[in-house]
Amino acid sequence: MDKLKFAFYWAASCGGCEIAVLDIDEKILNVVEKADIVFWPVALDTKYKDVEAFQDKYIDVCFFNGAIRTSEHEEMAHLLRAKSKTLVAFGACACFGGIPGLANVSDRDEIFDLVYRELPSVSNPDKTTPQLTYTAPEGELTLPQFFDTVKALHQVCDVDYFLPGCPPTPEMIEQAVTAIFEGTLPSKGSTLAPEKALCEECPLEIQEKKIPFIKRPYQVTPDGKRCLLEQGVICMGINTRAGCGARCIKANMPCRGCMGPTPEVADQGAKLVSAIASILGVEGEERMTEKEIEALIAQIKDPLGTFYRYTLPISLLRRKVIKK
């Protein structure tokens, strides 16, 4: 059998997904045995023009990580889509926008102002910000467009599979690659992770889902036994897909949602608002005054940033309103 052709690409990402590929350790040898890597900017010196030169569907499987932040990312998404038989959104950023997606509470002007003008470490007397074109003595230089809104991969092109996680665990990657080699991938559009939420595989004990207060993780010493949410720590495991092996929980940290919402959920943040506000203060709720309710709810700091930590670009509202 011919070797498969794999490609890896990174858009707006931290690089963790690249490391994750290496985290499968010696199993990478099995991959290399069965597949050639034809494009991998982090490791191989392949140019965009080389990719452009590929025939359509030349690549068997392209693993695309990172969110769509700039026009370059979007162009590459279209290009790789055209050149790949199977396009996999790899990691939380490609799947949902991820951490870069939180920038959707802001916009280009605000970000440029902050980064290039306002930060105390910046020395920029001319108040210059990146431009799309610049005419240098050597000729015209161009930069990619920096978008107002961060998007997930499937919001700019057709995606075949989603492999969530920040980053996807070695086990998940291995399973996905095995499925590719064995031809046992599920139907197109599937997320290569369990359908149930993380509680399914969480080792902590559930006693009663009534929480009298909310605490930040640093404010509590988890007892290592009881459900973190029941100890007042916001844990998103209640509607975040399982499949990660509850790694954060095992390190006494709550789930932050990197595996993305369970399949029926259209808006992870809204559902978390619903669930957490429902159980917060439920004991004795009939005696609570309006002021007490407000004070209790105010214990949840930055609900948007908390509940949409990885999924803001794919939420119903997608971003903060830009007042122009």
């Binding site: 608002v273 957490i276 506000a277 709720e285 309710i293 209790l296 709810i297 609900p303 948007l304 903060k320």
Partner: peptide, 15 residues
Amino acid sequence: ERKYVLLREMLEQFG
């Protein structure tokens, strides 16, 4: 009521 109070706060964050 509790859902409403929290949602309102979040809507404000959404602008």
